[in-house]
Design a protein around this nucleic acid. Structure first.
Length: 106
DNA sequence: GGACTGACACTGG
DNA sequence: ACCAGTGCCAGTC
């Protein structure tokens, strides 16, 4: 149901600025860690742009989505940099540093 | 109700 | 280290 999407959106909105979460993380928060694909779909729908920081959601490697139609991975990289997220030489997010840990609410 | 699809994750080669 | 295949779940046709 849409409830699942709502949970996903809520989880994404909970991501603090300067941190990123993987689809699996969001899925786990939504209720099922295997729902990562649904998370991607939910974000793609993005019925509430501005409230859903989809750019803070990356895959498990910290790599940006290959089909990010938000403005290009480049744009997302800059956005995260502006948020304070650190990147690696590969252009991937430094999950070791910016991976959002539920409970570590600033 | 059945089958295909998808912004993922994991294992194997 | 990289590419390919498989598995999971929910949505849409």
């Amino acid at each position: 149901m849409n409830d699942t999407f709502e949970r996903i959106y809520d989880a994404v909105c909970r991501i603090p600025k300067g941190k990123v979460a993987s689809y699996g993380q969001i899925a786990a928060m939504a209720g099922n860690p295997r729902m990562a694909r649904v998370v991607g779909n939910a974000l793609h729908e993005n019925p509430r742009p501005g409230e859903i920081p989809c750019h803070r959601v990356v895959n498990r490697e910290g790599r940006l989505a290959p089909s990010f139609a938000f403005g290009g991975q480049q744009f997302q990289r800059l956005l995260l940099l502006e948020e304070g997220v650190t990147f690696r030489k590969d252009g991937t997010v430094d999950m070791e540093r910016c991976r959002w840990i539920p409970g570590s609410i600033e």
